[in-house]
């Protein structure tokens, strides 16, 4: 399983940004391996973001394919390689929105959450201590479905912050918002999640 960044300090984030920049520079000097190393660190975020828009793993994978190609081709135009993360997020998000619009036209996308998301991801689950508890597993899946039912406005900050450890300031930079606005979105998103979870429990 790919590691998911959960608890990362500001200095570690800064180091990660520098590392991103170096990788981009190496790619532009002909090192394709450096690109795949970069993708390995971003794949979980991109996958979750795309899945949030598309709700079907196979559509998300197709979109990621397009997105990763676009990122590779767009690298020479990137003005600040240290900000690769927020730029790449934007590329993936746009691709996901386009794909979702296309799919909606073709009526391939259901309006409600698709149970296949949970099913597909469940098959990935490994054997660590959290996942061996069936009650916990059910809770995770329920929460995961609830997150995916939120609008993108609240879903993306939750995915970035809770699933991938981005700080409020980083999400703000990525989404073009202030940290306070991100905090407000997180608060409202959590409120919606809490209501949904409590509603289901009762």
């Amino acid at each position: 399983m790919l590691s998911v960044i959960t608890e990362i300090t500001a200095s570690e984030r800064e180091a990660k940004r520098k590392w991103d920049g170096n990788q981009v520079r190496q790619v532009l000097q002909g090192d394709v391996k450096a690109f795949w190393e970069l993708m390995e660190s971003y794949y979980p975020v991109f996958y979750h973001i795309a899945l949030g828009y598309l709700r079907q793993p196979e559509l998300a994978e197709d979109t990621l394919q397009e997105g990763v190609m676009a990122i590779y081709q767009g690298l020479p135009g990137l003005k600040d390689p240290d900000h690769f993360g927020s730029w790449a997020y934007t590329v993936i998000r746009r691709k996901a929105i386009d794909a979702s619009n296309r799919a909606r036209k073709e009526k391939r996308l259901e309006s409600q959450g698709d149970p296949t998301i949970t099913r597909a991801l469940r098959s990935f689950s490994g054997g660590n201590s959290i996942q061996s508890d069936p009650v916990k597993q059910a809770q995770y899946q329920q929460l995961w479905d609830a997150v995916n039912r939120l609008g993108a406005k609240y879903r993306d900050p939750i995915i970035l912050h809770y699933f991938h450890g981005y700080t409020l300031e980083e999400i703000g930079q990525t989404l073009g918002l202030t940290a306070n606005a991100v905090a407000m979105r997180l608060r409202r998103g959590r409120e919606a999640l809490r209501q949904e979870m409590e509603g289901k429990e009762s």
Binding site: M1, L2, S3, V4, T6, W36, M39, E40, Y43, P44, Y47, H48, E61, L64, Q65, V68, M69, L121, F124, S125, I130, Q131, K136, Q137, Q139, Y140, L143, W144, V147, I158, I159, Y162, F163, H164, R190, L193, R194, M197
Partner: peptide, 26 residues
């Protein structure tokens, strides 16, 4: 809720094979 969200992110992380498939497709 905070810890449940963190744990959900970890639980729902995609497998590495996904990236290998992507590499193969591209």
């Amino acid at each position: 809720l905070e810890s449940l969200l963190h744990e959900t992110g970890e639980y729902m992380a995609p497998e590495k094979e996904g990236l290998d498939d992507l590499k193969a497709k591209i």
